[in-house]
């Protein structure tokens, strides 16, 4: 019975059906299913499928936004009860995201922000051409777990090294994980500059973020 409900919940997310997602969340609660289990096996499974389809060009950004909204509303119903039950609800991971200074590319970064939010990660999107000090100030302000940067140009990739150096100089390197991405950025580059994480695409970013924040 639970498995059937989980499947329906996943489908509601893939179909971007907000009403259905909320209804199924309530059904799960009425049937005594652990809200966190419903989130993980139902809604999260659905949003993972959404990410997979997006990565293959089988689902598009506007639809993705609808799926994310269904995820948000469906899980909100469950999280509220989980909090009341005093469960071990994990606080959402916070990431400050932006395209580095000198670089105005926003499409890829926007996609990453959308996928992260859809997966329950709290995103503070600073936009494009973001100075290092703004990344750090925002991360301090919201007590972020991660600073995530995007660079689409070989000429702006170097900003990532500057960010890491500045964090070191200000004794903040241990406060925030740093994750890098963008067209010319690779795992090799991330390792070379000492970043904590790199992802090939938005989907992988979700996995890596959860790994490095642990």
């Amino acid at each position: 019975m639970s498995n059937e409900l989980f499947k329906k919940a996943a489908d509601a997310i893939c179909d971007a059906n907000v009403d259905k997602a909320e209804e199924l969340a309530q059904t799960a609660l009425d049937e005594g299913i652990d809200p966190l289990e419903m989130i993980e096996k139902g809604f999260t499974a659905g949003i993972n499928e959404v990410g997979r389809l997006f990565d293959r060009g089988e689902l598009f950004l506007p639809q993705l936004m609808g799926c994310a909204e269904a995820m948000k509303q469906g899980t909100a119903v469950l999280q509220e009860v989980a909090a009341e039950q005093g469960g071990d609800e994990a606080e959402a991971i916070k990431i400050v995201l932006g395209t580095v200074q000198g670089d105005v590319h926003d499409i890829g970064k926007g996609i990453v922000a959308s996928i992260l939010e859809a997966n329950g990660i709290q995103v503070f999107d600073l936009g494009t051409d973001v100075p290092i000090e703004d990344f750090i100030a925002k991360a301090k302000e919201v007590d972020a777990d991660i600073i995530g940067t995007s660079a689409l140009l070989t000429t702006t990739m170097g900003e990532n090294e500057e960010l890491l150096s500045t964090l070191e100089e200000e004794n903040l390197r241990d406060e925030f994980k740093v994750m890098v991405g963008g067209g010319p950025v690779t795992k090799r580059f991330a390792e070379k500059i000492g970043a904590d994480g790199y992802a090939e695409n938005a989907n992988e970013a979700v996995t890596i973020i959860r790994e490095i924040v642990g």
Binding site: R56, G57, E58, L59, F60, L61, P62, Q63, I107
Partner: peptide, 16 residues
């Protein structure tokens, strides 16, 4: 990349 989602050319959805 599907940024609009509903754009067609010659009856074909261009996204994807």
């Amino acid at each position: 990349l599907g940024m609009h989602g509903e754009i067609e050319y010659d009856g074909v959805n261009l996204a994807g």
